[in-house]
Design a protein around this nucleic acid. Structure first.
Lengths: 296, 296
DNA sequence: ATAATAGTGTCTGTAAGACACTATAGT
DNA sequence: ACTATAGTGTCTTACAGACACTATTAT
């Protein structure tokens, strides 16, 4: 009886509560869609190099007209954030059920000139073989860009009040002749016991909004996660050779790995199949593996 | 000339663009404010036990009237997410400049009965000695709860389509006689190469909204981060003994650590001072240390 | 034979975990 | 003497990194 009374009171409260009367921001979702794409090779016996690539859309309208942006859009009132992300992904790639992970929510006041817009960034990974919109054959406005991020400068300032460290990363996105560049500064401020980090875009000509920041953050997360999780398998087809897997790791980490060590590292995450790669490849065939879903 | 033309076009576009005409969600910030609080002890020569505690507010209004909730509030149109978080922290604790880290953004449709409300959760860590509102002397509606999270059940279902794993965590929050309990199920679905995770609240009587979920997520993040970062020092005063530091690690991780191993692990993160703990403590005095801001 | 990939064995150094031991203050 | 904390030394195991070596296929 008491409880049902409380329920009635709550219902009455909610009936008279009009949330729309408060001034509030808009919310969007931006998606860092990543894939591994093979480089062309003319040597039949050489394995193709693999690159980490990212989907960008050329903006046809203001603001940031003609600049390149992450796919994304407004969160509808009847959609969860994930639903919005999956809807955008389906619109851009025609694939569903792919890997999706929330990255970070960007809420600075001036990040969008249209007004107060908060954006939750997601990272999505897809095996390029599943893409119906193949790289190269896509529309004018949607292109896959090879991603390069390099640490180009570090500075350290020591003072009485603490330490300030800068790490400047150069982000280079390439699609044929189109080259987009940005420099993102990561700031680490140490005062007493407290470590504070912040970011700043030092240079950016062609990447819309704060998307250069999102890209750098997402790639850093991927590089970190690939070292201890099975996240890279989201970029692989259902069967693959260990060399292919290694090239994916190398594309993500942007460094060469030693074969023997790599194989030891992934050994528990993969299962050997009875099949091997076909013939006419000019070298020893390799065993095909699948992801070991019993890992961990 | 061309550029200024484009600028004029952009300005015109923005002038006619009214973002408020779209239906949109509201945004709040919720804060997981954590501190380490000493247990009372009657033995003068024993060091006090330390507990990880969390600030909750008893809701005086609907919805979830009389339930306990994380401090938080609506993001004002002129505030960044961080600004909102710091404002809320200042209101609750009267301390500024403390550690703050974004956790996750919760955007499910039904998470708040008042309407469509998206919430970005932050985790904040504070040295309890800095708190002006001391635990115990606080207002009726604001209390510090000891946090316990235990894995109480795991299940694994293997089928043709993949593997589903459940991990059920029991969350217990205690403040004197007040005991709040919830059970949060973490689901891991493995299909092919893809690993998908989701969460579900199985049982929850006294914790408002989806805050039990946020608490479990934040504590998991803290437990993870304490192993490889200097995050725990945000909970320490400017000088401390290694035993005190160890007790903080033990409170966070909820397990005992071996002294020699612990000291090796933190050795590079601390700097020895010339001072030691005072006298009349019934045992050998300990050296005082500070955080080594040159670490990493 | 040569070019290319496939696959394995072993050494070294570092770090984590377990455990045993010594030292010191106050009653 | 006893209680409690402070502080160090060493053994084992596991794992990451470097490197050397063998095997197989197509031209």
């Amino acid at each position: 009886m008491d409880k049902s009374n409380a329920q009635i009171l709550e219902e009455e409260f909610l009936k008279s509560y009009d949330i729309t009367k408060f001034d509030r921001p808009s919310v969007t979702v931006d998606i860092l869609l990543l894939s591994i794409i093979d480089e062309e090779t003319n040597n039949y016996r050489k394995l193709p190099e693999k690159n980490l690539e990212l989907l960008l859309i050329k903006r046809l309208d203001h603001p940031y007209k003609n600049k390149w942006a992450l796919p994304g859009g407004f969160v509808k009132i009847y959609e969860s954030l994930e639903t919005t992300a999956y809807r955008e992904l389906l619109e851009e790639t025609n694939v569903s059920g792919i890997y999706l992970e929330q990255l970070y929510t960007y809420g600075n006041l001036k990040r969008d000139p249209r007004g107060r817009i908060i954006s939750t960034a997601y990272m999505s990974l897809v095996d390029s073989q599943k893409l119906t919109v193949k790289p190269g054959t896509d529309s004018v406005a949607t292109k896959w860009f090879k991603v390069d991020i390099n640490l180009i400068n570090t500075e350290k300032e020591v003072s009485d009040s603490g330490i300030i460290e800068f790490k400047d990363y150069e982000l280079i996105l390439t699609h044929n002749d189109i080259i987009l560049k940005a420099v993102i500064r990561n700031v680490k401020k140490i005062t007493g016991n407290k470590v504070e980090t912040s970011k700043e875009i030092l240079l950016n000509n062609d990447i819309a909004f704060d998307h250069a920041d999102i890209i750098q953050y997402g790639i850093a997360r991927l590089r970190n996660k690939v070292e201890y999780s099975s996240i890279a398998f989201n970029l692989m087809p259902s069967t693959f050779t260990l060399s292919e897997l290694q090239k994916v790791y190398e594309a993500i980490l942007d460094k060469d790995l030693l074969k023997a060590n790599f194989r030891r590292k992934v050994s528990k995450m993969v299962t050997e199949t009875s099949k091997s790669t076909g013939s006419n490849i000019g070298h020893k065939p390799a065993k095909l593996f699948t992801f070991n879903s019993n890992w961990e």
